[in-house]
Design a protein around this nucleic acid. Sequence first.
DNA 1: ACCTGAACACCGTTCAAGT
DNA 2: ACCTGAACACCGTTCAAGT
Lengths: 201, 201
Amino acid sequence: MRKRDDELNHERRKAILDAAATCFVREGFHATSMKDVCTQAGMSPGTLYHYFGSKAEIVAGIMEAEARFLRAILDQLANADDFLAAFADAVATIAANTTERDLALYAEISAEALRQPAFREKAAEADRAGVAAIEAGLKRARSLGRIGGHVEPRQAAETLAILIDGWLWQGTLKGPDWLKARGGGLAHAAKTLLQTQETAP
Amino acid sequence: MRKRDDELNHERRKAILDAAATCFVREGFHATSMKDVCTQAGMSPGTLYHYFGSKAEIVAGIMEAEARFLRAILDQLANADDFLAAFADAVATIAANTTERDLALYAEISAEALRQPAFREKAAEADRAGVAAIEAGLKRARSLGRIGGHVEPRQAAETLAILIDGWLWQGTLKGPDWLKARGGGLAHAAKTLLQTQETAP
DNA sequence: ACCTGAACACCGTTCAAGT
DNA sequence: ACCTGAACACCGTTCAAGT
């Protein structure tokens, strides 16, 4: 029974993204040639370029999947009844689902994303969406009386997003075990920032 | 009067690093060919390779300068009498001395640093040094009674380092104006984290 | 030693030709 | 349409030859 073209297309694209991810992690983005990806995926250059127009498009495909993963987790914050517990859950979920390979891939892709203007914009948009989700969660938490009334949702959301980015960034240097171990500290810092009464002079 | 070789060597190396930085910012690390750097620096490939053994060595040279810049600022925290004021100063100093070009270069170099194992180790070491400087400052601040006695210096230092990294990282996406505007929020978050009494259940 | 520029092995991408 | 693999323009790096 002949498969529809759409199905073949989807399968081939997925196979190429997997092969590319394997190569990027094993040799680095820079050192990975299209020939490497072709060999890993078991197809000729012509075939690969039938599915992806360039090396950059492959990176875009991998970025998309990463963004979906983070987005799904952060979006839960927007509707959480207990924001602080949900934030701790989100951090734990990210840590639990991030392997050495994921971190290496994240590093390679982040690196590439920073230099391709189109991807930089995509990353900025993903960031805005993340901040918006956290902000929505904070507004809800404040109206429910779950966090201090002095908390300014927008500012606090940006600070939490900075914490998550810094945590992931350092995770690429320090590995998945550090990421897991440090997750608790991150949640604790969030609690301190949000629950506390001001002691300003 | 003939210059000593050491002097010529130093001048040429500096000229090459400047030329490379200009190219990296203008075209991106990837899109910059050694020929571009040669043209920008006004020398032939053979000459350039006389001073730097590879494109990677040029990156290492630029990284070194960046690390020195951040290190000098963070080291001041270790001996500060008023840690919170010194932290706010450090953030402001970084923001004030970071231009669009610096951020673009930082992004390019960070990207490259992540994939070259030797540079990744260098970045990790710079990070450890930064955390150590902050930790020393926190210990001093605690003994002086400047911050809450409940603060665990090591954990708090890691959290502050995460904040700085996340701030700089997002700065590469959002530009120098955002970096300056958000600096105050960063210092405020640090104050809240360090001054506050625990309100844990 | 410092410098030149041609040469080498290799890269991302294209395209005529097949099914 | 899907696929092949040779071909093209270009890259980082080297090296014989000059001063």
